[in-house]
Amino acid sequence: MDGSARMWISAIPSLDPDYRAVILDLDHTSSDPAERMAGVLLNRGHEGEEGVFYLLPHDLWARYERTGDRLAVSLLTYRSLLADDLTSHPAELRAHLDGLPRDPLDEDRVVLVRRETVTDFEPAERDGFRQPVALIGHGRGPVSLAELLGLFEKLEVGVAVVAAPEPPPA
Score class of each variant (00 low, 15 high):
Ala163Asn: 11
Pro123Gln: 00
His28Glu: 10
Val133Arg: 01
Pro169Leu: 08
Phe53Lys: 05
Thr117Pro: 08
Arg63His: 09
Ser74Thr: 02
Arg66Glu: 07
Ala160Thr: 12
Val73Asp: 03
Ser10Ala: 15
Asp84Ala: 04
Glu166Trp: 06
Tyr78Val: 09
Glu116Asp: 14
Arg20Lys: 13
Leu93Phe: 05
Asp2Phe: 09
Thr117Leu: 15
Ala95Pro: 07
His138Trp: 05
Leu41Cys: 00
Ala134Asp: 13
Arg6Lys: 15
Thr77Lys: 06
Arg36Leu: 01
Val110Glu: 11
Val162Pro: 06
Val40Asp: 06
Leu60Cys: 05
Met7Glu: 02
Ala72Cys: 11
Leu55Asn: 03
Ser144Pro: 00
Val111Pro: 07
Ala62Asp: 08
Glu116Ile: 04
Met1Gln: 08
Val157Pro: 02
Asp27Gly: 10
His96Val: 05
Asp120Arg: 09
Leu71Tyr: 04
Ile12Ala: 03
Gly68Arg: 09
Glu92Ser: 13
Asp18Leu: 13
Gly128Tyr: 00
Val143Asn: 06
Leu100Tyr: 09
Val40Pro: 08
Ala34Asp: 04
Ser88Arg: 13
Asp85Phe: 02
Arg102Lys: 12
Asp84Tyr: 02
Phe121Lys: 02
Val162Leu: 01
His28Tyr: 12
Gly99His: 15
Asp84Ile: 00
Met7Asn: 01
Arg94Gln: 15
Asn43Cys: 12
Glu107Val: 07
Asp103Ala: 13
Ser10Glu: 11
Glu65Asn: 11
Asp127Val: 04
Asp32Gln: 10
Leu81Gly: 11
Leu149Val: 01
Tyr78Pro: 03
His46Phe: 13
Leu100Met: 13
Leu97Phe: 06
Leu100Trp: 14
Leu105Phe: 14
Glu147Asp: 15
Val157His: 10
Pro169Asn: 13
Val110Met: 11
Arg36Asn: 10
Leu82Lys: 07
Arg20Pro: 00
Leu42Thr: 14
His89Ile: 00
Asp103Ser: 11
Arg63Phe: 04
Thr67Gln: 14
Leu100Glu: 12
Tyr19Lys: 10
Pro101Ile: 05
Val133Asp: 05
His96Thr: 05
Thr117Ile: 15
Ala5Lys: 06
Val161Thr: 07
Glu47Ser: 11
Asp127Gln: 08
Val111His: 10
Pro123Ile: 01
Trp8Val: 05
Ala83Trp: 03
Asp69Cys: 04
Gly137Asn: 04
Glu125Cys: 11
Glu35Ile: 07
Arg140Ile: 01
Leu24Asn: 01
Glu107Asp: 15
Thr29Ala: 15
Tyr78His: 12
Leu24Gly: 09
Gly150His: 07
Gly139Asn: 11
Pro169Asp: 14
Ala95Lys: 10
Pro142Ile: 00
Arg130Trp: 07
